[in-house]
């Protein structure tokens, strides 16, 4: 057996889950309904469809991390708790094969769910508006799949670091709270906290580049910025704070940097998770 065999075995086992099919179907129904209800009588059909994908991005930014975390949080912790990991490692598999196999399998699984959601939305949009926006569709799908891969990376890595189901659940919920909720609820935002520390406690002058840079560390904010890369310029949105008219974001806060943020969130958790999994006594 090798990484590919682990991928095949894990994917086959995961796709048998009734809960997974139920969640995928519900989300696909949701995106179909969004596509049906979305209309803009003042825009031509092609622009309406492009706006739809942009709007879907806003919804998926909040929902997809839940799907990715739920689909992955037990990937390795479950094997450890049930003892299956000893069987996996008893065969000529290295821990790297198991770790990479689990990650690849769950990324593929979540990408299929995302693909199903985009399919129903696209079908509904085409049926309603009579047009297809292939470039924006492929762009938003690619960015969304990348975003979900980030959360799969985090969840698989956390799963590799813990040995029990309860710990895996706590880690998944905690990561969602830290990486998503803290960036969307007004009043408890990370940017506000940093601003309070910087200005009120330490007494420094306001530095919006710093606050924006902290904000940009969230995969959610990076996802919103990355959406600007794949939609027409008139649909781009201002994601970071602009304190005054004429303020221009420095280059390191540009939309392109979102790909670097994604890369960091993909690689660093995987590296840390693998190192912990490789050194732990099973």
């Amino acid at each position: 057996m090798s990484t590919l065999d682990v991928v095949r075995k894990d994917f086959t086992a995961a796709r048998r889950s009734r809960a997974l099919w139920a969640v995928a179907t519900l989300l696909a129904l949701l995106t179909a309904l969004i596509a049906f209800g979305f209309s803009n009588s003042r825009s031509p059909p092609i622009e309406t469809v492009q706006q739809l994908y942009r709007t879907m991005g806003g919804v998926l930014g909040i929902l997809l991390p839940i799907v990715a975390l739920v689909a992955s949080y037990m990937s390795i912790a479950g094997e450890r708790e049930s003892g299956g990991v000893k069987f996996l490692l008893g065969l000529p598999n290295s821990r790297r094969d198991v770790f990479l196999g689990k990650f690849t399998s769950r990324v593929t699984l979540v990408a299929v769910v995302v693909g199903f959601m985009f399919t129903t939305a696209t079908v509904m949009a085409t049926a309603r508006q009579g047009v297809l926006a292939p470039v924006v569709l492929l762009g938003t799908f690619a960015v969304t799949a990348l975003y979900s891969a980030v959360f799969v990376s985090i969840a698989v890595s956390l799963s590799a670091m813990v040995a029990a189901r309860s710990q895996a659940i706590a880690a998944a919920v905690g990561s969602y709270f830290l990486l998503v909720i803290l960036y969307v609820i007004p009043g408890v935002s990370v940017a506000l906290l940093v601003r309070f520390l910087h200005q009120t406690l330490l007494g420094f002058d306001p530095n919006f580049d710093l606050y924006n840079a902290v904000l940009y560390t969230s995969p959610l904010i990076a996802y919103r910025k990355a959406m600007n890369l794949v939609v027409p310029s008139e649909l781009e949105r201002q994601v970071l704070q602009r304190p005054a008219e004429g303020y221009t974001l420095p280059g390191y806060l540009g939309d392109e940097m979102s790909l670097v943020v994604f890369a960091v969130w993909l690689v660093v958790p995987l590296a840390v998770g693998y190192l912990r999994f490789n050194g732990v006594d099973l």
Binding site: W21, A24, T25, A28, L29, F116, T120, V123, M124, A127
Partner: peptide, 9 residues
Amino acid sequence: VLLGTLAIG
């Protein structure tokens, strides 16, 4: 579309 989605699920 809703029927198709449910049927595929």
